[in-house]
């Protein structure tokens, strides 16, 4: 269950974005809008796809736009994975 905890999802997301941007994970601000990272639609979809694989569940294609920060998204994902355990 560990990987479904909010803090772990949050760290995992920060890791992924730091990998895309090639910056240290500590430089990834978890409260800024995804727009600010300069992600285009393909990059956003890459994150959604990687998340689906990581959490082993399908996600809305718009999830990054509905929950547009790492903090908000990880809270949302922790909530839906807790509600319907897979």
């Amino acid at each position: 269950m560990t990987k479904y905890e909010q803090s772990n999802i949050e760290n995992w997301l920060a890791d992924l974005i730091s990998e895309i941007l090639e910056v240290p994970p500590t430089e990834v601000d978890r409260t800024v809008h995804f727009d600010r990272y300069g992600l285009d639609s393909v990059a956003a979809l890459t994150i959604t796809t990687a998340l689906e694989e990581h959490l082993e569940r399908e996600l809305d294609a718009t999830v990054l736009y509905d929950y547009p920060t790492i903090a908000k998204l990880s809270h949302h994902l922790a909530e839906i994975t807790a509600r319907v355990p897979q």
Binding site: T2, K3, W12, D15, L16, A50, H54
Partner: peptide, 9 residues
């Protein structure tokens, strides 16, 4: 603690 898979791009 289970290991968390490294993201792949």
């Amino acid at each position: 603690m289970s290991a968390i898979a490294k993201p792949r791009i």
